[in-house]
Write a protein that binds this DNA or RNA. Structure first.
Length: 485
RNA sequence: GAGCCGCUAGCUCAGCCGGUAGAGCAACGGCCUUUUAAGCCGUGGGUCGUGGGUUCGAGCCCCACGCGGCUCACCA
């Protein structure tokens, strides 16, 4: 204890002094028969229920009606007057002020209040009234202590702004920053809206393996793991694609999965090693059908989450309201590098590279880029008119890829050849290739109906719809190196 | 992986040309029965990210390391 000079072993940090002062209050509560970490208290109303029910009423009306409320929450502010105090309580729905007064509460309960700190959880019960300044409040006739917080909350004016602490201790970030709470609520609303949209069109949500014996579905380096009992090396999935298409083979004509993928690559404002992807597959549809579906999906989700199809993002306004621009990759490249676009024979690598370097970042408004080279699209159907390209599109917005979709390659013979070229590339040292999946070929041989499929990066979409500059602002617990200490 | 920037009290931040550490909030002790960043009086709180070095003297200069941010490279 810092105030005890005899204890030389404990460093006298002020953080520890705060902790110990609060611990003493917890002990004092126990001595009064109050469990500082009790349980079982029942809450009558949320803050929002109280304000919804009585927020429109004048002081006099409340004085006559004397409606009662029983609310609970974290104390986020205390304004004390000695024998009375205002406590600002926050629950999941909002905030409500409680007024505690010694002569109303009684000596014993008021002493319990006296052992409260900002950060603690308490419950109050009593009449709803309006204060002299007009704020709706609950007069505490009963005061129940719920939970002691031993550590202080960040400062009340500026909150918590240290980015590292915000990510490492997201609970503090959420307690301190209303905008952060709003962002994650929006993300949840977005995911819910997407599910509702797909469910409404006859899609079924499925769960496929996250641990894969083979690497497939995307061009990326995998994480590896091991199953002891089977003595089996496994890869965390980089994409669920081949499993979902197996389900279409099985007769589930419209399926989707909205869950985590894992890619063993760098971390940036656009990348987290585990990220959330929506993948959906629709039999008897083409990639062109999916462009229309994507426009409808994003429009409805933007309205649901951002309140408008015109979404502000980092100083610009992204318009999801109108049909998105459509341009073939070769036409897009022709505008910035005509020499590469007109090369004969097609230089797929150079075309894609030129697109990524010179075009991608300029695509601010939602844009479908179509007709990707076959060489970079090992699972996509070839274009009937020009087999050098595939019936594929990627959606770009704010200079970033948001979605990737194509008419699925359901020709098992073509697919086998594509797998073989992937294996050849891997043998030449390419670390981002797929494995040959013999069972997937067998599934295609069983018959995959004409199908189109799409993947949408949920984190990136959440960034756009919440005006967040970094993917870490829309992932509750982004991957960080462990703390030193 | 490379470059640049940051790391000072629990939180938000000052700290000049190198001279021995500051504010506000929070905490602690008082006063205060309608506040809204409540107010008033008082008190305590620091291994200045870590480790070296230069110097009579380092929060400040130099080196290394750690963690974080941004940019670039690769991907969704």
């Amino acid at each position: 204890m810092a105030s005890n000079p005899k204890d030389a072993t404990a460093p006298a940090t002020s953080e520890q002094e705060i902790y110990e002062a609060r611990l003493r209050k917890a002990t004092a509560l126990r001595e009064k028969g109050v469990n500082p970490w009790g349980n079982g208290h029942r809450v009558g109303q949320t803050a929002k229920e109280v304000t919804d029910a009585h927020g429109g009423k004048a002081a006099e009306a409340l004085e006559t009606e004397k409606p009662r409320a029983s609310v609970a929450g974290r104390i986020v502010a205390i304004r004390s007057f000695g024998k009375a105090a205002f406590l600002r309580l926050r629950d999941r729905t909002g905030e409500l002020q409680a007024y505690v007064k010694k002569d109303v509460l009684g000596e014993a309960a008021f002493e319990v209040y006296g052992l409260c700190d900002v950060g603690d959880f308490v419950a109050v019960e009593g009449p709803v009234f309006r204060t002299r300044t007009g704020e709706l409040s609950v007069q505490a006739e009963r005061f129940t202590f719920l939970t002691k917080a031993l550590r202080p909350l960040p400062e009340k004016w500026h909150g918590l702004s240290d980015v590292e602490t915000r990510y490492r201790q997201r609970y503090l970030d959420l307690v301190s920053n209303e905008e952060v709470r709003a962002t994650f609520r929006k993300r949840v609303a977005m995911v819910r809206a997407i599910r509702a949209f797909l469910d409404g069109r006859g899609f079924m949500e499925v769960e496929t393996p996250m641990m894969h014996p083979l690497v497939s579905g995307a061009a990326a380096r995998p994480f590896t793991t091991h199953h002891n009992a089977l003595g089996l090396d496994l890869f965390l999935r980089i994409a669920p694609e081949l499993y979902l298409k197996r389900l279409v083979v099985g007769g589930f004509e419209r399926v989707y999965e909205l869950n985590r993928n894992f890619r063993n690559e760098g971390i940036s404002t656009q990348h987290n090693p585990e990220f959330t992807m929506l993948e959906f597959y629709q039999a008897h549809a083409t990639y062109e059908d999916l462009m229309s579906l994507t426009e409808e999906l994003l429009r409805s989700v933007a309205i649901e989450v951002a309140g408008s199809a015109q979404v502000p993002y980092q100083g610009q306004v992204l318009d999801f309201g109108r049909p998105f621009r459509r341009v073939t990759m070769i036409d897009a490249v022709r505008e910035v590098a005509p020499d590469i676009a007109s090369r004969e024979p097609l230089d797929a690598e150079a075309l894609v590279q030129a697109f990524e370097e010179k075009v991608e970042g300029t695509l601010v408004q939602p844009t479908f880029v179509t007709q990707f080279p076959t060489a970079v699209s090992p699972l996509a159907r070839r274009n009937d008119a020009d087999p050098r390209f595939t019936d594929r599109f990627e959606l770009y917005a704010a200079g970033r890829e948001i979605a990737n979709a194509f008419s699925e390659l359901n020709d098992p013979i073509d697919q086998e050849g594509r797998f073989r070229r992937q294996v050849e590339a891997k043998q030449k040292g390419d670390e981002e290739t797929m494995d040959y999946d013999a069972d997937y070929i067998r599934a295609l041989e069983t018959g995959l109906p004409p199908t189109a499929g799409e993947g949408i990066g949920i984190d990136r979409l959440a960034m756009l719809l919440t005006d967040s500059p970094s993917i870490r602002d829309v992932i509750l617990f982004p991957l960080l190196k462990p703390e030193a200490k």
